[in-house]
Design a protein around this nucleic acid. Structure first.
Lengths: 345, 345
DNA sequence: GTGAAAGCGCTAACAG
DNA sequence: CTGTTAGCGCTTTCAC
């Protein structure tokens, strides 16, 4: 009746335990795990078997010290409570897991300072970082890119690889959709001025509107939130536009609410299109027509890129990887009511 | 014109660099950071100043090797795309940051296997773990609790500390609300059978119904998702109930949709209450009356508990920390229509 | 109060 | 192909 797990043997087995049990040198055990092929096939097999029996697991911390390879990636998120990031995280997480990496999530809480501090704490522990919705300045981003391979999501920063969705194409689809419906003018409800995506979307819309012969207004900036949208409703009402495209879905949803509260019908009186296709876009009434970015694919692409750089590939900084967007048509868009859509009377 | 940052001096300064610059032994530098008080105040001050000048930062990996203190906590999430977890994560993250810890987020993707694998990879790197919405068995959870201090969220596991919201009280409030409105019978739309919370909510509702003299039905189980809810709508229709309480908000939202699609009005024909108050509950039409758990507080409480255990406190396994819930009344509940609410005719 | 020395568990030359 | 030997950067006895 021997104690099956005597208390004096509490620590997990090390490479030394395995080496002793297998009758080889510790370095051989190490090789058997990290550089199989550089060790006799049979020996390697035996070592692995014995290791398994002993329940040996290589200690990632100990490995990290001499090599710097922690098998961890940081993913910093502008706001972890924002549903927009959920799918991105999921994509990043799965790509990381496939490559044997663990994802360290860092919540920036929409604050530059918080973001830097949190990133600072996480940086030494990770091999690379994905920045999504970063509030940091371009130069701050380049700074961290100097310390660890970095890829930026939905933003372009000179000299730093990035993955973006095709805002231009998305905007073109949205504008064409509205034009097809018969609208002659559209109002853009702008998000944060500092936002790279906002600038991009606005410029794209301007081009698309020109091509399609749509008249264009812009109001804002507004906070990219539901309350921000209800705020914007007032401005939209004053414009008398028959169609609006909002910087993002939150803004669009708040906008619809504000409009409805003011007795303006969506889409009969004004059509609304959002951006991002967040969870919730299909929940509201009417369902929100929106430009859907391939969120999960973005997350995957970002960490894939990161991992290939870690594997020795040259970072692709010359130009962003752009992923296609698609238009999800729901009930918030329709033809203009007679007498609307011609700008101010 | 000397190169300000010669390439041969690339590595960040170590304790040895600081020691040399300060004219003390490396161990003294170490003490100055980890055990101030065990070193002469002036010396400590000087060391810290020099360290700052050199830009020295203690290498967490190197510290972790001898001590095991990685300053990282794992937070495993059943499904990172589920908005329900956003606030929990935020709370956990902030409490961790306050204590100087970094949060390692692990997405279980609603899969037992994925959860174990991911946790396995993360475990050696962290000092403690919080499990939220875990799909693992009680015994698997106890297993990991043996390896690292663990706290479970919204579930009770023998011998493992946990934080739960007051489901019983929440159910009581929901049931009373319905009773006050004049309903005489309520149907519970059940979630996953394996779910601890589902069992808890059902039992609580049974008690509350008994106290209030409400008749009670139960249908399900259904997947705790929006499609699951539309599925459930059929069953609810057959019951002819005037009021239903769903296991969670997704189910409730899907249910409302299914009902509305079938021409049943909410709340005129049937009142619906959900659970969790997810983002989206206020977006739907009508707004969903729901039991709100103090999500952020839960996340905070969980990592606080974890940290106090890491600090040497005895884990509180005897009984769960229970946090109060509240009822958020929106538009999905109202008085019963005449002729309804009396069960099958 | 401070210095010296011995590791933490693993990897990476370097010999053989 | 395998064993030996130094460390990675920090902490921690143990002496002085």
């Amino acid at each position: 009746m021997a104690d099956p797990d005597p208390p004096e043997r509490r620590h997990p087995p090390t490479i030394y335990d395995v080496a002793r049990a297998a009758g080889v040198a510790p370095s051989t055990v190490s090789r058997a795990f990290s550089r199989p092929g550089r060790v006799n096939a049979e020996t390697a097999e035996r070592i692995r078997r014995i290791a398994a029996e002993l329940g040996y697991r290589t200690n990632p911390l100990a490995r990290a010290l001499p090599t710097g390879r922690t098998s961890m990636l940081a993913c910093v998120i502008a706001d972890i409570t924002n549903p927009f990031y959920g799918e991105i995280i999921r994509g990043a997480e799965s790509a990381a897991a496939e490559a044997g990496y663990v994802l360290l999530l860092v919540d920036a809480q929409e604050s530059d300072r918080q973001e830097r501090e949190a990133l600072d704490r996480a940086l030494p522990a990770v091999e690379g970082v994905v920045l999504t919705g970063s509030r940091m300045s371009d130069s701050a981003i380049r700074m961290t890119a100097k310390q660890r391979p970095t890829v930026v999501l939905n933003r372009e920063v000179a000299d730093v690889p990035s993955v973006v969705s095709d805002n231009a194409q998305g905007m073109r689809m949205a504008a064409r959709h509205l034009a097809d419906l018969g609208h002659r003018a559209v109002t853009y409800v702008a998000g944060p001025e500092a936002s790279w995506a906002d600038g991009m979307r606005w410029r794209s819309l301007r081009e698309a509107a020109a091509e399609l012969g749509l008249r264009l207004n812009r109001i804002g900036p507004y906070p990219p939130t539901i309350p921000g949208g209800t705020l914007a409703a007032e401005g939209v009402g004053r414009q008398g536009a028959s169609a609006v495209i909002a910087y993002n879905d939150q803004l669009a949803i708040g906008l619809m609410r504000g409009l409805q509260a003011a007795g303006v019908r969506v889409p009969e009186d004004v059509s609304v299109v959002g951006f991002d296709n967040i969870f919730g876009a299909e929940l509201v009434t009417p369902g929100l027509t929106t430009v859907a970015a391939p969120l999960r694919a973005q997350g995957r692409a970002a960490v894939r890129g990161l991992i290939s750089v870690l594997g020795g590939a040259r970072p692709r900084t010359a130009q962003a990887v752009v992923l296609p967007a698609r238009l999800v048509v729901r009930a918030s868009t329709g033809g203009p009511a007679p007498g609307r859509g011609h700008g101010r009377p």
